[in-house]
Write a protein that binds this DNA or RNA. Structure first.
Lengths: 133, 133
DNA sequence: ATTAAATACTACTTTAATGTAGAATTAAAA
DNA sequence: TTTTAATTCTACATTAAAGTAGTATTTAAT
């Protein structure tokens, strides 16, 4: 029951950029150092977050990253979706696909309770709510 | 946010054995067929469940598996522990280790709510509660 | 006794996630 | 204008999980 490294990295990256309040842009090296994210791996995640329109990248010397929109408008689920193909959120916990009502997996009903809690958390938690602004 | 294939397999296997109420023992082939678990992979999981004292194996012709104890005494968390080295249950969602109170990861507090719900479910859900007995 | 049907053991292969390397591109500073 | 510091792109390497194969062992049925 875990989040992939890539997802963990992405969330930490977004938090770092949201919290960065200096005039100089925050660059990949700093983020890599702060969270012990392998630099070369991080620099492959960054373009995905740019592509998702969460951050703006500025290339060249003195370049780096900054938020592209309000921290309050970016929730954890958005970040997860940007780096994972899908969160598996709607998938069943005991089989590859989804359970249908007639043919439920053994944990289907039991899992609904924590799964709902997870979904609510990922949906309602925004960058604003978890950063020191 | 997912359970490993091995964990999923183990839970399905235990449910199948718990629900099996014929005089003939339930064998690996049947379980493999029922849940589309690769036979050879399944036969490497079985000894772990035997080792954990959840099931009894009977070798040789007409052999198979049966529950070693009451279905009510085996909870999901027990099964997960038997096949995973650790469930990561106590680990933090955004870093390899555990957060300490002073140095929390960004999602630490937010994660506590769903995490508690997951723990309760895995601890309180027993084979008895999810099988048709 | 022999055969058949089952579990158990050991080693190997494949796959997807993760991590690494190097070169290209960009743009400010010197 | 050259250098430097940054992002981006593409390809390759490593690792751990998942899957496969073959053989040994066990035991009931024949």
């Amino acid at each position: 029951m875990r989040l992939s490294n890539t997802s963990q990295y992405a969330i930490n990256i977004m938090v770092a950029i949201a919290e960065h309040k200096e005039t100089k842009l925050l660059n990949a090296k700093s983020i890599s150092d702060t969270f012990d994210i392998p630099y070369k791996y991080l620099t492959r995640i960054m373009p995905q977050l740019v592509e998702a329109k969460f951050i703006i990248s500025t290339r060249g010397r003195e370049g780096g990253y900054s938020l592209a929109k309000e921290a309050s408008s970016i929730s954890i689920i958005n970040i997860l979706n940007a780096v994972n193909d899908s969160l598996h959120a709607s998938k069943c916990i005991l089989k590859p696909g989804m359970c249908d009502a007639n043919n439920k997996c053994a944990l289907h009903d039991s899992w609904m309770v924590p799964n709902k809690s997870i979904k609510i958390m990922f949906n309602q938690t925004t960058l604003e709510s978890i950063t020191n602004l």
